[in-house]
Nucleic acid binder design. Structure first.
Length: 416
RNA sequence: GUGAGUGUAGCCCAGCGGUCUAAGGCGCCAGGUUGUGGCCCUGGAGAUCGAGGGUUCAAAUCCCUCCACUCACCCCA
């Protein structure tokens, strides 16, 4: 028997109510904040991701699904959603539109070759939005507000918003050097992993959970203490706006993100007390990315969120989601002539917009009503030989077992 | 990529070397009067016990390899 490839899964009918629920909230929030939908291909030129996400990152180094097609093109199944949006922004002349350009994507599959766990998959689905062409911290606040309101609108509770600023091209290297110096003085206390991080990706040093390393991390220089005047002003205005909006945030000096393109504002939203795979959504500024991809210097900010993790948390928090609409009428029939009538009736009602489940095969009436019961339709319409002769049908109310004989023409009104 | 745990019908699971031609519950199918559901009763279908190999007179039960899931690391959504 075949089974799904590792780290992928089927989204079964009984799961769909959650996904549709999330979709409805996404569409609603995007409409409220004025974002327009953009869909991009599942695969892109490999270079788009190596250049944007960054050569030294885990995503590029060991997680991408990269292949060469028959034309010799190097392609990669997208490992994230921001770079494709930026590519589209440039490719379709959006720099000429009024800025910022606000775009969102929904239900896009993203691919990363990782060791699967609950909440971590090789193919998972993301929702995200991007605002390109504006560096006003009011926009940062709006984006964070939008993310926050979105998760609240799902009904999720006990969320925490982690916030940090990692500076820009000017001030980040200074902080980075201070960080390296600090750690270089404490190498003896570091774990093996951190010694590697020191060389490869110093920002990640702050993330280490080992207690000995945390001691070093606690006393490490903070990015917010090294911000240049512009970045410092940007960050304090953002915090002021968030206070104004009454959005509770936690400053987290260790919040660093795994993609190279982030600058200045970075943030994550997670359930309180979440495990390792807890982050529901995260994002930040990427003021250099558009330029890196060949455009003019263009500031931007965005967020990405994982749908599976939302569904996981909706279930964990026992948040009810509305059931999907289903047919409200079941048609049962006995005998060949009755079946002919049933077929015609089902079609007529459906054309008039009434959802119908039509009995198939030649099962007993008992079996047919059992099926109606499982399908939880409001009514059953029963056509037998008697009814065929008199040109009537039986209309049964499944809730109270009341039934009456009616003529088919009256059904649309009676079914409501 | 590293370490650990788990893997029995569609689902939940009992069994942990011979009494297993594998038990139970849910679900599914059918019957319990002649054309009628939900409760109840009865019956039925459905499992090469994750896959492959080995040990043994004997393996769902022990060992090895592989696959998958779960947890931690890592990474992130």
């Amino acid at each position: 028997m075949y089974q799904v490839p590792r780290g992928t899964s089927d989204i079964l009918p009984e799961e769909q109510a959650y996904w549709r629920y999330v979709e409805q909230k996404v569409v609603n929030i995007c409409q409220l904040y004025g974002y327009e939908r953009l869909d991009s291909p599942v695969f892109e030129d490999t270079g788009l991701f190596t250049r944007s996400v960054g050569q030294g990152t885990d995503i590029v180094e060991k997680e991408m699904y990269t292949f060469t097609d028959k034309g010799g093109n190097k392609l990669t199944l997208r490992p994230e959603g921001t770079a494709p949006v930026c590519r589209a922004y440039l490719e379709h002349g959006m720099p000429n539109l009024p800025q910022p350009v606000k775009l969102y994507y929904y239900f896009i599959p993203v691919f990363r070759y990782e060791r699967p766990q609950a909440g971590r998959y090789r193919q998972h689905y993301q929702f995200g939005f991007e605002a390109i062409g504006e560096d006003d911290p009011a926009l940062d606040a709006e984006v964070i507000d939008m993310a926050w309101q979105f998760f609240l609108s799902l009904g999720l509770r006990h969320l925490s918003l982690q916030l940090n600023s990692i500076g820009c091209r000017q001030c980040r290297p200074i902080h980075l050097n201070a960080l390296k110096d600090h750690y270089a003085r404490h190498t003896a206390k570091l774990c093996a992993d951190c010694k590697v991080r020191l060389e490869r990706n110093p920002l990640r040093l702050l993330d280490c959970k080992k207690s000995s390393c945390q001691v070093v991390a606690n006393s490490a220089p903070r990015s917010t203490d090294y911000l240049c005047p512009q970045c410092g002003a940007h960050f304090s205005r953002l915090k002021k706006y968030l206070d104004l909006l009454e959005i509770p945030f936690t400053l987290n000096h260790r919040l660093v993100r795994g993609l190279d393109y982030y600058t200045r504002t970075v943030f994550e939203i997670q359930p309180r007390g979440a495990g390792a795979q807890g982050t529901l959504g995260g994002g930040g500024r990427y003021d250099d990315l558009i330029e890196e991809l060949g455009g003019k210097p263009t500031p931007a900010i965005g967020l990405a969120a994982g749908i599976e993790r939302m569904v996981l948390n909706l279930k964990k928090q026992a948040i009810p989601v509305p059931p999907l609409p289903r047919p409200r009428v079941f048609i049962a029939h006995l005998g060949n002539e009755a079946r002919d009538e049933a077929i015609k009736l089902a079609s007529r009602l459906r054309r008039a917009g009434t959802g119908i489940i039509m009995a198939t095969g030649q099962r007993s009436l008992k079996a047919q009503l059992r099926q109606a019961n499982t399908a939880a339709t409001r009514h059953a319409v029963i056509i037998g030989e008697q009814e065929v002769k008199t040109g009537t049908v039986i209309l049964r109310d499944m809730a109270n077992a009341q039934q009456k004989t009616v003529i088919p023409a009256d059904l649309p009104g009676l079914l409501g």
